[in-house]
């Protein structure tokens, strides 16, 4: 188990290094770093100062060293627009994005698993057909358009829910989140639904496939032959088996949702890192773009690592590290 965690950790570091190199090459080797990282309205003196601090006059490998060194110290450049360290801007907005993403994920899981079970236990029934067609519909709906329709229906026509921004932040058990105020919740509902619908389809399909693949296995029949109740067979025997792929995929999807939050945040003007990214791209505020990419990739790699460790906790074959 420990060996597994350590090996997995080293792998994560390796992926992080590879991505850092790719991002670095993207900025320094393909583009012109001076143009990308120095504000267009900087004076000649400022320009020279930045060139010196980034080592742009030095060979590429030395630039990479400087880049990595700075990155490790949390220095990912200063925003042209805000004139503040870009990393600080990212961390300021990260909680809003995490709150949105996690709420969306919880939506997807709470709805998706029961629907998937329902569908998988009665394959080819009318219920199954409706749920499955619905799920194809769900992932065919372009996320941004679906968000617009939510706004049109629930904000413009019905006027039930606010369409933009994040509500006031409340405090509960030392945590700060808009989940803890009524107005905050109201603001959160539409964006969270928007972000979760796509993943909902995935969770449904995954659960259904898992159920359908597990139900015909011998151990299910054996459990029946032992006189175990159908409920226990489904919720213990089958569920524990499908939990393994489910955790893996849901975990990985958390990362993809963080990235997809860009779309949701743009539509709902949610003040998270995704909106910051798009705004920065539009304003050519490249240090923030670079910082976003590095932060989100690190976050993503970290999530993958945690998922794999969790996975190994659920699967005894991995946990005991002696799969034969």
């Amino acid at each position: 188990m420990t060996v597994f965690v350590i090996r997995r950790f080293l792998q994560s570091i390796a992926v992080l290094v590879v991505t850092a190199v790719i991002v670095f090459l993207g900025i320094y080797a393909i583009g012109d770093p001076a143009e990308m990282l120095i504000s267009p309205d900087a004076s000649q003196a400022e320009r020279a100062q930045v060139v010196a601090s980034l080592g742009l006059d030095k060979p590429l490998w030395e630039q990479f060293f400087t880049f990595t060194w700075n990155a490790l110290h949390g220095d990912l450049g200063r925003s042209f627009v805000f004139n503040r360290p870009s990393i600080a801007l990212i961390f300021e907005r990260l909680p809003a994005t995490l709150e949105l993403t996690l709420t969306g994920l919880v939506f997807a899981i709470l709805l998706g698993i029961p629907l998937g079970l329902l569908s998988g236990l009665k394959p080819n029934s009318a219920t199954d057909e409706v749920i499955m067609t619905g799920s194809i519909f769900g992932f065919s709906l372009p996320s941004f358009w679906q968000g617009m329709m939510l706004i049109m229906i629930f904000s413009v026509w019905l006027g039930w829910l606010p369409s933009t921004g994040r509500g006031p932040v409340g405090e509960f058990l030392g945590l700060h989140s808009s989940l803890f105020t009524l107005d905050g919740l109201k603001h959160l509902i539409l964006p969270a639904i928007n972000l979760s619908l796509f993943k909902l389809s995935l969770v449904i399909r995954l659960t259904r496939t898992g159920v359908r693949e597990t139900m015909p296995l011998d151990f299910v029949k054996f459990a029946r032959a032992k006189g175990i109740s159908e409920r226990r067979i489904v919720f213990v025997h089958v569920f524990k088996n499908i939990l393994i792929p489910l955790i893996t995929v849901i975990g990985l999807e958390l990362g993809s949702m963080l990235a997809f939050a860009v779309v949701t945040e743009t539509i709902f003007a949610w003040p998270g890192i995704g909106k910051l990214l798009i705004d920065s791209i539009m304003r050519l505020d490249r240090p923030v773009v670079v910082a976003y990419l590095l932060v989100i990739v690190s976050l993503f790699i970290f999530i993958n690592f945690v998922v794999d460790v969790l996975y190994s906790l659920v699967d005894p074959r991995v946990r005991l590290g002696d799969a034969s």
Binding site: D218, F219, F222, K226, N241, D315, P316
Partner: peptide, 25 residues
């Protein structure tokens, strides 16, 4: 029928690799 299965009539399957649930002790 469930009260009969496993209680009054038990069954042993062919492939022992498949009859036990891999994720339960």
């Amino acid at each position: 029928m469930r009260t009969i299965r496993g209680k009054r009539i038990a069954m042993i399957f062919q492939d022992p690799m498949m009859t036990l649930n891999p994720v339960l002790s």
